[in-house]
Amino acid sequence: MDNRTNLDDYLAELGISEADESVTPPPMPDASDSAPVQEAADTDARGTLERFLRGLIARIDPELSVTVREVDDALEAEISGENAARLAGRDGRTLGAIEVIAYTVLSKQEGRGDTRVRVDIGGFRKRQADTLSKLAERLAIGVAKSGEPHELQPMPAAERRVIHIALKEHPDVMSESVGEGASRRLVIKPRHG
């Protein structure tokens, strides 16, 4: 297992940046904790994710804050602050990259490749989910009226999931994912029977 705890080590290894001595990572949690082994592993994973994200945002905007919580089988992180929304990037691309890097750090440092990582910045994911839910409802009305299926453009699994959930209980239409890999897309079609 890799014991590096400083973002500078990751960045230096990638050739992105030299160490910035003005920002010190938060202290490591005390290993003498008497929590059960699985709970301790979850706490370590949460702590690793939180330390990584705090180190990252400290270099971008020290006014931002990070909260990490465990939800079901995932760790959810929220980055908030006055200018947080700008950090999400165009169409959430920067947010997506941060999420991938955070998962990679967690996987490599804690050996936790089985833990899902979800990051939201300034409520971007929530707004995106609301927009997708409204889109799903509008498309469902159109499909119900026309009786013809509607195929959406390829989209990431998280976005397809939002639409599936929005239409799960819809009386007139159903949704399914088709295709493989990056070209996987969602089809909304009339519910028969």
Rank of each mutant, 00 (worst) to 15 (best):
K134G: 11
E18G: 15
R69M: 03
D30G: 10
R125P: 03
Q128S: 13
G92Y: 00
I101W: 00
S17M: 10
K145Y: 08
E21A: 15
E176C: 04
V23I: 15
L49N: 08
I188H: 04
L53A: 05
V100Y: 12
V68I: 07
A182I: 02
M174N: 09
A157K: 04
G122N: 05
I121C: 03
I163N: 05
V37K: 13
V178D: 12
L152N: 02
D33A: 14
D130I: 05
R127H: 13
M155N: 02
R93C: 03
A88C: 05
D61C: 09
G15S: 06
G55K: 04
G96I: 03
P62N: 13
E76Q: 14
P190H: 04
R161T: 11
I165C: 01
L106E: 07
L135C: 08
D8V: 10
L139F: 01
Q38I: 13
D61V: 10
L87S: 11
V68M: 07
M1R: 13
G193Q: 12
R93G: 04
K134M: 10
V119W: 01
G193A: 14
V117Q: 02
E18S: 14
V117N: 05
D33Y: 01
P171F: 03
R112T: 03
G123Q: 03
V37Q: 11
Y10T: 01
D20W: 10
E63S: 15
S146L: 06
V178P: 09
A166C: 06
R161A: 11
L167F: 04
E148Y: 06
R125T: 10
L14N: 04
A74F: 03
E21I: 13
V100T: 15
A85D: 03
S177F: 12
D2G: 07
T48C: 15
A40S: 15
A12G: 09
P149S: 10
D33R: 11
P149G: 04
R93M: 11
A31F: 06
G55Q: 09
R59G: 14
A19M: 12
S32G: 15
G181T: 07
T48E: 13
E176S: 12
S175N: 06
T48P: 03
D91P: 00
L135G: 06
P171W: 03
H192P: 00
S177N: 07
E99R: 13
I121R: 00
E159Y: 14
R93K: 15
R59S: 05
S133T: 13
V173F: 05
Q128Y: 07
I165S: 10
V187M: 04
R46G: 14
P62I: 09
A88P: 00
D73F: 09
L186S: 06
T43L: 12
N83K: 09
E180R: 10
E176A: 11
V105F: 10
